[in-house]
């Protein structure tokens, strides 16, 4: 890790045409903190990650990483501070895993510079850290969804950015691989990174996140420790489900019962 980051968004506003997608949003993620981003479909989770990563233009507000404004950085320099692992995208060519991870070094390399010794070390460390070294020569198209997700995280690791934005990194994974990926994220966080992770699984979020941020209709409607946020009232109001929330072994367990027809 080259530098300690910390992410801060102030008064963030994103519009698509006339529609406001994110309205005056304030959000912070400290170094060594894993924050889960929760919310129903269409709440604005992906838009928020996209805006933070520079995929979507920002109408108003400011994004700071380690205290410096991202709007003053070029695309390349921004990528040294912050990276995004989007939802699974199909890759139409048989790129070897090693090359995908190596692409993480792009923001550190000149246009014509080949990979140097330091880059190769960073790539090797990333392959080892995400346990994908044995896949290095395999095609990205011919490994399992869980392995592919770990490869993309390894790419982010090789990129060496202190702030990670992850869009539903466990969505296409079976239970075993969900747990593996979440454990990896926990470990990456403990090394000092700031993680903002959009998740659908509330129990996974409660168990692995330091803090939860709940968005609905482009606004933050609740945030705090899992046991403070995950309450039956909020689940009914924001997620439109009747659910039971129980404290167990220091975390909250959410058991959904049924979908609500009408807003309460």
């Amino acid at each position: 890790m080259s530098a300690r980051g910390g992410l801060e968004a102030k008064g963030l506003e994103v519009r698509r045409g006339e529609r406001t997608i994110l309205a005056r949003l304030d959000l912070g993620v400290a170094p060594g903190e894993l924050v889960a981003l929760l919310g129903p479909n269409g709440a604005g989770k992906s838009s928020l990650l996209g805006a933070l990563a520079g995929l979507l233009p920002i109408a108003r507000g400011e994004i700071l990483v380690a205290g410096r404004s991202l709007s003053q950085l070029g695309v390349r320099e921004r990528a040294r501070w912050l990276t995004l692992v989007p939802q699974e995208t199909q890759i139409p060519f048989e790129l070897p895993v090693e090359e995908v991870v190596a692409l993480g070094r792009t923001p550190h390399l000149g246009r014509f510079a080949p990979l140097g010794a330091a880059d190769r070390q960073a790539i090797h460390r990333a392959l080892v850290a995400l346990d994908v070294l044995h896949l290095a020569g395999r095609s990205i198209c011919r490994i399992s969804g869980g392995e592919r997700q770990r490869v993309h995280l390894a790419r982010a690791h090789a990129q060496d950015a202190p702030v990670w934005l992850l869009d539903e990194p466990t969505s296409s994974l079976d239970l075993e691989h969900q747990l593996r990926v979440m454990n990896v994220l926990r470990r990456m966080t403990s090394e000092g990174r700031s993680m903002l992770v959009a998740l659908h699984d509330l129990n996974m979020a409660a168990r692995f996140a330091d803090r939860l941020v709940v968005v609905a209709a482009g606004r933050i409607v609740a945030q705090g420790a899992p046991r403070e946020v995950l309450r039956e009232g909020l689940l009914a109001e924001v997620f439109r489900v009747k659910a039971r929330c129980e404290l167990r072994e220091g975390t909250v367990e959410v058991s959904p019962i049924e979908a609500l027809d009408q807003p309460p």
């Binding site: 995929l55 995004l84 692992v85 989007p86 995208t89 890759i91 790129l95 923001p107 993309h152 790419r155």
Partner: peptide, 11 residues
Amino acid sequence: LLGDAQAIAIG
């Protein structure tokens, strides 16, 4: 090849 989002994410 990794898609627009990842390409932007790596600068």
